[in-house]
Design a protein around this nucleic acid. Structure first.
Lengths: 205, 205
DNA sequence: GCGCTTCGGCTAATAGCATTAGCTTTATGG
DNA sequence: CCATAAAGCTAATGCTATTAGCCGAAGCGC
């Protein structure tokens, strides 16, 4: 009986692909049985590489977070302000469309206390830090950055989530609606900076 | 052997309560076994009142949609424009905090084709129509209403979702962040109306 | 009050899942 | 060439949903 030559990474990769193939509910529908069948292995064998089904889901989330961070960084490099924010939003939506299951995994919140979730927490924090960095270009006061980050995450995340779970009816015009939302966020974050910055000469009343 | 006196509504109510007790993941964690235990009945007996576990989840979603619609209507009656929109947003967040499991069920998208989902589709459409009605007060051009509705839903839904799934770190300042987001949406929708409306006399350049 | 029908419960059985325990074989390193 | 660790296996447990078929309780016509 030849050996399958699995590894933890291989198992996670198989799971990530299965999860994407299952669309928006792919993560919920993930089972060890399917992973084992795809890998050509008996289900209990997976426990040599992964702690549990929940553990596997967490690792899929990690992969997704890393990919999303990498793509976001690539998309925003060399850009600043509204330009960077738009690129960031576009990247997130594109990632969700290309990887619906993985994107659902991004939503999995790590346990704030569990030590085995430390890597997950760090990875999630990296994405948030990236958003914060992009928003730095808007000259926000320090204590408003967190509000802006949360607003942007909420808007983009909410749109993408609704879109890929079928929450919007007409499939047409979705691109335009997304642009409208992103414009709102850009304007909102800009206003958040202006509200507390001293007026420039040409803005003087 | 005395009879339990169940009904479909009673079963759904028990399920809805269980789902709320389970927090953000309560809907995913719902099982017929738990419902049966709570009702004091054997699991197969539930099939006299409900078609399947998925069917039960769908009915929970229906209850949640109805409750959310009722609460939203009550909160926005007698209000218009920004005032109404703010009240709507506040109501959604409050509902999600009071009923995290039910709110997660709201996210369940009905099958656009399945005949048994007709009621679900109608109920979901009612909430959307209510949002559209609230946004009427902003004087948007007809073909922009849909963009505004989607943006508002995305922003509010996304924030609430992230909040109750633990996606935000510091529990403090969440109220302020939510206010910032809602202000962005109000300003954004207002701007969407102004952009295409002829300028009033005092706005003439 | 009597019987019939319907309805709401039951038990038993099947099948799929995650997970644990313990065995066996393969690779690997000395 | 052998010892050991890693990676697979089968068997077993216990949970889940779901189906089938039984049986007593409630309500109805008479």
């Amino acid at each position: 009986m030849p050996r399958a030559g699995l590894s933890r990474d291989a198992v996670v990769r198989i799971a990530a692909d299965l999860v994407d193939a299952g669309g928006a509910t792919g993560l919920a529908d993930l089972t060890l049985a399917k992973v084992a069948a795809t890998a050509g292995v008996a289900a209990p064998s997976l426990y040599k590489h992964v702690g549990s089904l929940a553990d596997l889901r967490r690792h899929v989330a990690l992969v997704a977070l890393e990919e999303l961070t990498t793509a976001s960084a690539a998309a925003t490099i060399g850009r600043a302000g509204p330009d960077a924010l738009r690129a960031l939003a576009r990247t997130w939506r594109a990632y969700a469309q290309d990887h619906p299951g993985r994107f659902a995994a991004v939503q999995l919140a790590p346990d704030p206390d569990a030590p085995e979730d430390a890597e997950h927490r760090a990875s999630a924090a990296r994405v948030v830090a990236l958003v914060a960095a992009v928003l730095q270009g808007f000259g926000l006061p320090d204590d408003r950055v967190i509000d802006a980050v949360r607003s942007v995450r909420s808007g983009v995340h909410g749109f993408v989530q609704l879109e890929l779970s079928g929450g919007f009816r007409l499939p047409e015009d979705l691109d335009r609606s997304f642009d409208v939302l992103v414009d709102m966020l850009v304007a909102g974050v800009t206003a958040l900076g202006d509200a507390t910055r001293p007026l420039s000469p040409e803005e003087q009343p």
